[in-house]
């Protein structure tokens, strides 16, 4: 007969036994037989609707049956099934939170590198900042977040500042800044220095406005697009907050 290995927390329902012999031709009928032999297990394996609970994972000879044929995976007498729990949980926190410290590190880094690019006349630095911001936008996080998460936060130099806020407008704002900097890069490499540095300084100014005054111009644009029901722009400003202004923590 096929055997099923029971995880420690469920052995109290199998009289302490770790391995149970079951009858069945596939994973589903084998589990059914197990729950029939030990009825105390049923409520922990299945929901009230008869679905396998989210944390129940079945491995057939070390392979997750999800990647085989799921509950219909056929089994032989010599096979060994193992029930492995996955564990999940979490608080009832209803609102998305945004760590504004990560955003500020991002803005400060953008300003520093862009100003440096201007001072030493290095268009490649503008392109680098544009690239990092683009990657951040695609990953839906501040481009220079690793500097914060892996260096400044662990060192204790910057403390988290987590407030209820929407993440999307900040991602959009960064994307907008990246677009301006790509425009600047193209202008600079094409020889249109005045236009290129003007666009760069526009991004520097808006990042500084956000860093020092807490006003995110790109978020303001996002919320207006949402108000105009532009597709994909779904979020409204946190309660009591002017669009684009930093919510009170």
């Amino acid at each position: 007969m096929t055997t099923i290995r029971i995880p420690t927390p469920l052995r109290q329902y199998t009289a302490g036994q770790a391995e149970i012999a079951v009858a069945g031709t596939n994973v589903s009928t084998a589990l059914d037989d197990l729950a029939g032999q030990y009825p105390g297990l049923r409520g922990h394996l299945y929901t009230e609707q008869g679905q396998l609970r989210g944390f129940v994972n079945i491995f057939l000879n070390d392979e997750d049956v999800r990647y085989l044929q799921g509950a219909a995976t056929p089994i032989a007498d010599t096979d060994r099934l193992v029930i492995v729990p996955s564990i999940a949980g979490g608080s009832d926190a209803p609102l998305v939170k945004v760590d504004h410290a990560a955003l500020r590190v991002n803005q400060a880094t953008i300003i520093t590198l862009a100003v440096l690019g201007f001072v030493v006349n290095a268009p490649w630095l503008v392109a680098l900042v544009a690239a990092v911001m683009t990657i951040g936008t695609l990953l839906q996080r501040p481009g220079f977040k690793p500097l914060y998460a892996s260096v400044l936060k662990p060192l204790g130099w910057v403390k988290p500042d987590v407030i209820a806020d929407n993440a999307e407008p900040h991602v959009f704002a960064q994307g907008l800044g990246a677009a301006f900097l790509w425009g600047a890069t193209i202008a600079l490499f094409a020889g249109a220095g005045v236009l290129g540095w003007a666009l760069t300084w526009l991004v520097i100014a808006l990042a500084a406005l956000n860093l020092f005054a807490g006003f995110c111009a790109g978020c303001f644009v996002y919320y207006w697009l949402a108000r105009l029901k532009a597709p994909g722009f779904l979020k409204t400003p946190p309660a009591g907050t002017f669009p684009g202004l930093r919510p009170r923590g």
């Binding site: 995880p7 420690t8 927390p9 469920l10 052995r11 109290q12 922990h44 609970r53 989210g54 944390f55 729990p85 564990i87 999940a88 949980g89 979490g90 608080s91 009832d92 926190a93 987590v162």
Partner: peptide, 17 residues
């Protein structure tokens, strides 16, 4: 920033013992 108490989601995913 939330209470050290199990949520409904915690319970759905919890195992005995």
């Amino acid at each position: 920033d939330h209470p050290a108490e199990p949520s409904g989601f915690d319970r759905d995913w919890a195992l005995p013992w």
